[in-house]
Amino acid sequence: MKSAYRKLWVFAVVIGFALSLTRPVHAQGSATLLNVSYDPTRELYQDYNAAFAKYWKAKTGQDIKVQQSHGGSGAQARAVIDGLQADVVTLALAYDIDAISEKAKLLPANWQSRLPNNSTPYTSTIVFLVRKGNPKNIKDWDDVVKPGVAVITPNPKTSGGARWAYLAAWGYAYLKSGKSDAAAKDFVTHLYKNVPVLDSGARGSTTTFVERGIGDVLLAWENEALLSVKELGPDKFQIVVPSQSILAEPPVSVVDQVVDRKGTRTVVEAYLQYLYTPEGQEIAARNFYRPRLDTVAKKYASTFPKIKLFTLGEVVGDWHKTQSVHFADGGVFDQIYQPK
């Protein structure tokens, strides 16, 4: 019996020693971060992570490996709430990061005021992708709700991008009608009557439109539309820019609880700061996200057409109000599909 206990003790000591060895080595020489993001940022963060790793190595000598996780914005937020150890979240809309703050208390409620520009280093908007030659002659939002035009957009309840698309349509009608909620509701009702397929995410909708040949117009993230045209060839599709659209702000944040426990706060904060530097902004612009920095914006002016952008605050309010009025159970979006 005694020797059995001895063996156990020796075993425990060896394990403990091994563990104590691994810890500090990790902290000094290298670090691994997890960036939990939404679907269309895949290419952006592939480029950005490589650039940041190089920058950080030159500055501090530390090797950084950033792992990426992509999925629907809401699903990603839920994963973090349920315990996915994200050092940083870069999601499609502020509401999803608010949810992490509220449900899991992983970051403070004022997270969005900690970085410049509402913590959104790059922006995007909603544009139309149509088939080559624009056979249905779609010029602006009013053409999209005409009878006989099939519109492809994902379900706003399951897709962050779709929520921006819905709000862009709402905002257009709201501003055009002199701020009438009723007119805006009527407009989005007509819009969604023209939608034959509601995919669950932005990439799914792009596939439906591009590969399956369904629909006349795709309401797309500007970056997705530019990427589609670049990848699939301008001989098949073209982008139509409406007279006005929404300023979509996909925010970023450090996840405080996680970085403090892992001891990665310094590098993670630098990771997000670097997004605001000219280098970071260039990478965003190259991946078709609108940069915030004027100098970079000027350089890429030919990529991003001039468009009148309104903010969410101008047409609805903050995300909490938007969510409860429009996308919650029984909200405006559900009313569109209510059987008469």
Partner: peptide, 20 residues
């Protein structure tokens, strides 16, 4: 995935989760 027509129950569950 059209509500009332081609929406399966598991999708409805996912939709609810999406709203937390």
């Amino acid at each position: 995935n059209m509500p009332m027509r081609t929406e399966i129950t598991p999708l409805l569950i996912i939709t609810r989760l999406q709203e937390y």
